[in-house]
Design a protein around this nucleic acid. Structure first.
Lengths: 226, 226
DNA sequence: ATAAATTATTAGGCAAACCTAATAATTTAT
DNA sequence: ATAAATTATTAGGTTTGCCTAATAATTTAT
């Protein structure tokens, strides 16, 4: 199908990285995404972002108005979701089939997500049993870009006495994931909120009968179901 | 280990493609490899090859003297073998695990071979059961660049009356492999040589009780054991 | 309301990897 | 042995995606 071929083969790795970055920034923001936030996310300079944004706008992947920020078009969003789909399928493969630890997969998946082959994505999905969540608990978009709906709730939003199950992480950096490993916090770990400090929102939680202190930054980045 | 890291992370995709092309050309030639043969293999222009060869020589991946051709250094050869190892492991994965046909895998494997992660290569190798041959019958180098020794014999080298088993193909192009599929020739197919035309070396062979005519070009590209 | 700080854009450059056209070196053919 | 053909190199250009430095627009602070 023409659109599919177009979605799969037309864009450079750089362009794909911009689409993905904009998509992720849109998740946590409303309205247009600023040039500077993109440059921060991709560790490039703002001037480079301006340049690339112009190109993406010409290709109808983003809507863009000077000083008013960027937003993905429907085509841009579809392609961003395809890259995220590939990224998360590969992460699943690496962890579940190749014995990678969840904190080791990010860099490799960043490379693998740019491999262009519609058949590969589909067959990999089948081979893995059409998983719905990656090893970090993030939902894997299906071939049409639909995400399994699991509204995310942050650990930082819970109150004293709440019980919860850990369902994902917003910061997938190796250092954060290693920190979680050290605290024995992982996907589906059961958590009880013992208390919250009023001055900085540090949270005291119970994990496997151990008491652990987590900063607001940490609890903001942990998704739970409760 | 330092050398390993060096081998894995130092080179661009283009550089890797040149190393691989030179390695393959060296298999069928003796002495230095000409600029023009490289440009033909990679469908680039000779001027681009000259440029790249200079760069590879500076990085000690090839030995190079004006008008005397190119040869891989030991480092260059090691890295070429790593890329070939990755290419063939991925082809094995695609055919044996993801239901690709053997004539569909080349382009995807050309992309996957450039993924940089020593752990990925090792774990993939283990996951696949440390296969020795890819789906085309080509040997897969081990982690040290050693190839399982299976000296290759061409079908074109056999005489009338010889029996043989098909063990691999030199031309892995989709069109050639599809031609073979149509003739019911595949890995481990049993062949009997019925006759050879003296004027153009066209060979008449018996495959599953069917008589088939193969051009010299075809028989040159089929490896056999007999 | 104006100065200061922030954010975005433009202009001009650079490196990688390709290209064409012109030229040079070597080999082959008569 | 010289002309013709082949092969290789050089010079100069292009595109992509990045950079710095200068400038412009907008927002924030006093």
């Amino acid at each position: 199908m023409y659109l599919y071929a177009l979605l799969n083969y037309m864009f450079s790795q750089s362009e794909e990285n911009y689409l993905k970055a904009i998509f992720h920034l849109q998740q946590n923001a409303n309205g247009g995404i600023s040039t500077s936030s993109i440059s921060e996310k991709l560790t490039t300079k703002a001037a480079s972002v301006t340049e690339m944004i112009k190109k993406l706008a010409e290709k109808n992947l983003v809507d863009y108005q000077k000083y008013y920020g960027v937003q993905l078009t429907e085509t841009g969003r579809k392609h961003a979701l395809l890259i995220i789909r590939k990224h998360r399928l590969w992460e699943f493969f690496l962890v579940k089939r190749l014995n990678f630890n969840w904190d080791e997969v990010h860099d490799v998946a960043e490379q693998l997500e740019h491999i262009k082959s519609p058949k590969l994505v589909e067959e990999l999905d089948i081979f893995l049993g059409r998983p719905e969540y990656d090893p970090h608990g993030d939902p894997i978009p299906d071939a049409n870009g639909n995400l399994p709906k699991a509204p995310k709730k942050r650990l930082s939003g819970l109150k004293k006495g709440d019980h919860a199950i850990c369902k994902g992480f917003n910061d997938n950096s190796s250092s954060f994931l290693q920190f979680l490993d050290k605290q024995n916090i992982g996907l589906n770990t059961k958590i009880e909120v013992i208390g919250i400090e009023s001055f900085d929102e540090t949270m005291t939680i119970l994990v496997n009968s151990n008491t652990i202190l987590l900063s607001k930054t940490a609890t903001d980045n942990i998704y739970v179901e409760h």
